[in-house]
Amino acid sequence: MTYVVTENCIKCKYMDCVEVCPVDCFYVGENMLVIHPDECIDCGVCEPECPAEAILPDSDDRATPWLEINRNFAQSWPNITRKGEPPPDADEWKGKPGKKELLSPNPGKP
Rank of each mutant, 00 (worst) to 15 (best):
P86S: 14
C12M: 12
P37K: 03
D60K: 01
D58M: 13
W77R: 03
V5S: 09
D91Q: 13
G29V: 02
P57C: 03
G29S: 00
V45T: 12
P107W: 03
D38I: 03
P57R: 09
G98C: 13
M32P: 02
K13T: 14
P86F: 08
C50A: 11
D24V: 05
T6M: 02
P110M: 02
G84V: 00
C21K: 11
C40I: 10
N8V: 02
H36D: 15
E92G: 00
P88C: 06
C40K: 02
H36V: 00
P86I: 11
A63F: 03
K109N: 09
M32I: 12
K100E: 12
G95L: 08
I80K: 12
E68C: 01
A52T: 06
C46G: 09
P88I: 04
P22K: 05
V18R: 03
L103Q: 11
C50I: 11
Q75N: 14
D91N: 13
N31A: 12
L67R: 14
M15K: 04
D89R: 09
C9E: 06
P107H: 03
V23T: 10
C40E: 00
P105C: 13
Q75V: 01
V4Y: 01
E101F: 07
K94S: 13
T6G: 05
I69R: 01
I35G: 09
D61G: 02
V45S: 13
C40W: 07
R82L: 13
G84C: 00
F26A: 00
N106G: 00
N8A: 15
C9W: 05
A90F: 11
K11R: 14
L102N: 06
D38Q: 10
E53V: 01
K100A: 11
F73M: 06
E49K: 15
E7K: 00
V18D: 00
P57A: 10
L33K: 03
S104C: 13
V28F: 07
P65R: 01
R62W: 00
G84F: 01
G29T: 09
N72C: 04
I55W: 03
C17S: 07
P107I: 05
